[in-house]
Amino acid sequence: MNGRTVLERFPAGGPRGSWPAEEFAQARRSEGLPAEVVMDLATDMFLVIVRSGDVADATA
């Protein structure tokens, strides 16, 4: 177990000036979920994640 939940995946090669992963994470944070964006180099994708424990804390 890697201690995270992946909420969504976004390709790294998005349009110039577009930050869909950051926008998605910000929307989740505004809902009270401590989402963050990380880069998965193996798949060249941005992942929006919540670390283990944070999901339970946010939904309690």
Rank of each mutant, 00 (worst) to 15 (best):
M39D: 07
V50E: 03
A42S: 15
I49G: 05
F24N: 03
R51S: 07
E22D: 15
L41N: 14
G3P: 04
G14M: 10
I49F: 03
F10C: 01
Q26L: 02
S52N: 13
T59F: 02
D44S: 12
A42P: 10
R28D: 06
D44L: 10
I49T: 13
V50P: 00
G32L: 04
G17I: 12
N2K: 11
S52E: 12
A35R: 10
P34K: 03
W19V: 12
D57S: 11
N2M: 12
L47D: 01
V50S: 02
V37M: 05
V6M: 00
L33P: 08
L41G: 04
D57E: 03
P15C: 10
L47W: 03
E23K: 06
D40R: 12
A35M: 04
P34N: 03
D40L: 07
M1R: 13
A58V: 09
T5I: 13
V55H: 03
E31I: 09
D44F: 08
N2F: 06
S52I: 05
L47S: 07
T43H: 10
G17K: 05
V38F: 06
R16F: 14
L47H: 04
P34Y: 05
F46N: 01
P20I: 09
P15D: 08
E23Q: 11
R29W: 00
Q26V: 00
G17P: 02
S30R: 15
P15G: 13
T59I: 10
A12K: 15
R51N: 00
A56I: 07
L47R: 04
D54H: 11
G53N: 04
A27M: 12
S30P: 06
D40V: 02
G17D: 01
M45A: 05
I49S: 02
A12W: 14
R28H: 11
G3D: 04
R16S: 14
L41H: 15
R4W: 03
D44Y: 11
N2I: 12
L7G: 03
V50T: 09
E36S: 14
V48D: 01
P11C: 15
A56D: 04
V48S: 00
P11M: 14
E23W: 00
M39W: 13
L7T: 08
P15Y: 05
T5W: 01
S30Q: 15
M1K: 14
E31W: 09
D40A: 00
V50D: 02
F24Y: 09
R4F: 04
E8F: 15
A21C: 06
F24E: 03
G32W: 07
A42C: 09
A58C: 05
M39Q: 10
E22C: 08
A42V: 13
M45Y: 09
N2S: 14
D57M: 08
L7Q: 00
D40S: 03
T5H: 01
F10M: 10
S30T: 14
R51T: 02
L41S: 12
R4S: 08
F24K: 01
P11F: 15
Q26C: 06
R4H: 09
R28W: 11
F10V: 13
L41W: 15
G3S: 07
E31D: 14
S30K: 15
I49W: 00
V50K: 01
D40H: 09
A12E: 15
R29M: 06
G53Y: 00
P34C: 00
L41T: 12
L33S: 08
S18C: 07
A12P: 05
V48C: 04
D44C: 07
